[in-house]
Amino acid sequence: MLKIEGLTAEVEGKPILKGIDLEVPAGEVHAIMGPNGSGKSTLSYVLSGREGYEITGGSVTFDGRDLLAMEPEERAAAGLFLAFQYPVELPGVGNANFLRTALNAIRRARGEAELDAMQFLKLARAKLKALHMSEDMIKRNVNVGFSGGEKKRNEVLQMALLEPKLAILDETDSGLDIDALKIVADGVNAMRGPGFSALVITHYQRLLDHIVPDRVHVLMGGRIVKSGPASLALELEAEGYAKVAA
């Protein structure tokens, strides 16, 4: 599904990613763990196409396509979803309008029919119900006045609606209490299946109690220094990054 080879990237002339090799097959959930400043967020932004990151080498293919050549919206339409560490507030933009515009843009790209307002509302209600969220969520402006937990839940709602092939969860657990964490984890787990992969980026093992990964990768100093089964996360938690990576 996702194949990263020798990826290097810079921010303002400073190398951050120094040669990443990583493959996430279809249907698998992989976790990337690493200390602060290891390049975790840079990796998620590079994969989703944010400006300000210069790719200096390597390649990324997504579903067999050259991901790095695509615009951010093309990546989204191809099925890549980034759950933001800090979801952006959009004053004046209603959540329902935002979600429907996004869903229809993606459906258009997939050659599917667009949903009208009523069809969308029906779908959104179903998803809200499945996620145990109130309908209020889509009536408000995007993330405006949301608590940290509400923002993360809104990210999960969007993921559920847009049905991506690969979701990147960038420190989605940061700032969440245990209830919100469960809602996020349930949302991801509900999507697990042969057509869905996820890359869970996190500093702590906590989230991985709820979203058990197929593989864990340790990112330090811009490189994957170690990979292993889910138990590697527990090892990291117990021993610390320095020791495990040594």
Binding site: E71, P72, E73, A76, V88
Partner: peptide
């Protein structure tokens, strides 16, 4: 940041 958020959700620029 807002522009990128919208585009990352698949909305054309």
């Amino acid at each position: 940041a807002q522009l990128f958020y919208l585009r990352a959700r698949g909305i054309p620029a």
